[in-house]
């Protein structure tokens, strides 16, 4: 069973590596975007799924990463790849500091406090007009090269970012700290009397999660070569990220990645048909996921697809 999964994963990887030589530029863009979401969802899942803290505003660190790369490449002419460790570091440090007070909150309170952090950082960036360009946005230097090459370049860089997130999640789930996080998720009191330094581990989990999301932000900024506070802090990112995590299964390593692939490819297919009302369709799609498959597709369809299971899911949480 386990071996089968690993073989499947490497097969999937092999396909991804060779895909750029087969598919069109349009699909390369779609896939790069999918990798981006897979990175964000997988990275955020460390705090959300593993530790059980619904960091709704985790996208804040995506924005921070985007602006770190943005400011470093424009103002200080630092090469793009060199900026990425700084994206990770800024996410790590920021979440580490903010985590000490904020992670004392639980549930709804924690979720909204993270949204508060996101909005606050957004406003600060919005106001630092001289370095960030404020609400007008920031234009990054465009990469030199053939469009063909640039497409492939970002495809692979984003894929590596996604793989890094998956790798770190995998390692965390295998080692000692993974057990601590899972214990915290289920029962924090029980975890602490067993000797788990819960504030430390929660903060660490959030910091690692923020670092990964930060890297994704940095790559995104250089890829699109234009960022503004309203797109990188918030928008529909948080809810898409959550929907992906739920769709694939929050407690698993690869669940968010699979969720990202399903949701992004569905959206892409749907978008092209309903451009005018795509927001409404996205909203409905998310509502349907929550209603029918809140436990993720794997948990729900273990042993085959059936409509009865969807209805059972619906009945389980209803009043």
């Amino acid at each position: 069973m386990k071996d089968k999964k690993i073989i499947l994963f490497f097969l999937f990887l092999a396909v991804l590596i060779f895909l750029p030589y087969i598919v069109s530029g349009y699909w390369l863009r779609v896939l790069t975007q999918t990798f981006l979401f897979a990175s964000i969802a997988t990275g955020s899942n460390i705090i959300i799924g593993f530790t059980g803290y619904p960091a709704f505003g985790n996208i804040a660190f995506f924005g921070v990463g985007a602006y770190v790369t943005g400011v470093m490449t424009t103002t200080y002419n630092v090469p793009f790849l060199v900026t990425l460790p700084f994206c990770a570091l800024s996410g790590f440090v920021l979440a580490g500091i903010l985590g000490i007070p904020i992670l004392r909150l639980k549930g709804h309170y924690f979720a909204i406090a993270t949204v508060g952090i996101m909005e606050t950082i957004k406003e600060i960036v919005d106001n630092m007009v001289e370095t960030t360009g404020g609400g007008m946005g920031l234009t990054l230097p465009i990469m030199v090269g053939e469009p063909e090459f640039i497409y492939k370049y970002f495809y692979y860089v984003m894929m590596l970012c996604m793989l890094l997130s998956v790798l770190i999640c995998y390692i965390i789930s295998r080692i000692k700290i993974g057990y601590a996080l899972r214990a915290i998720r289920v029962d924090e009191d029980a975890a602490s009397v067993m000797g788990i330094n819960t504030p430390l581990y929660k903060t660490l989990a959030w910091a690692v999660s923020a670092a990964l999301v930060g890297i994704a932000g940095g790559i995104y900024a250089y890829w699109l070569s234009y960022i503004d506070p309203h797109t990188v802090f918030g928008g529909t990112y948080p809810v898409k990220m959550f929907a992906m995590i739920l769709l694939g299964g929050a407690t698993t390593v690869t669940g968010p990645l699979i969720g990202a692939f399903i949701l992004e490819i569905i959206s892409e297919l749907v978008w092209s048909k309903f451009i005018a009302i795509h927001g409404m369709v996205l909203g409905l799609l998310i509502i349907c996921i929550i209603l029918f498959i809140p436990k993720g597709i794997f948990e729900t369809f273990k042993g085959g697809f059936s409509f009865r299971k969807l209805l059972n899911n619906l009945r389980e949480n209803s009043l």
């Binding site: 057990y179 601590a180 899972r182 214990a183 289920v186 029962d187 975890a191 067993m194 788990i196």
Partner: peptide
């Protein structure tokens, strides 16, 4: 700790 097996519970 639900979601962890008995063995994993004790390993914590």
């Amino acid at each position: 700790f639900g979601g962890l097996s008995v063995l994993e519970n004790v390993m914590v």
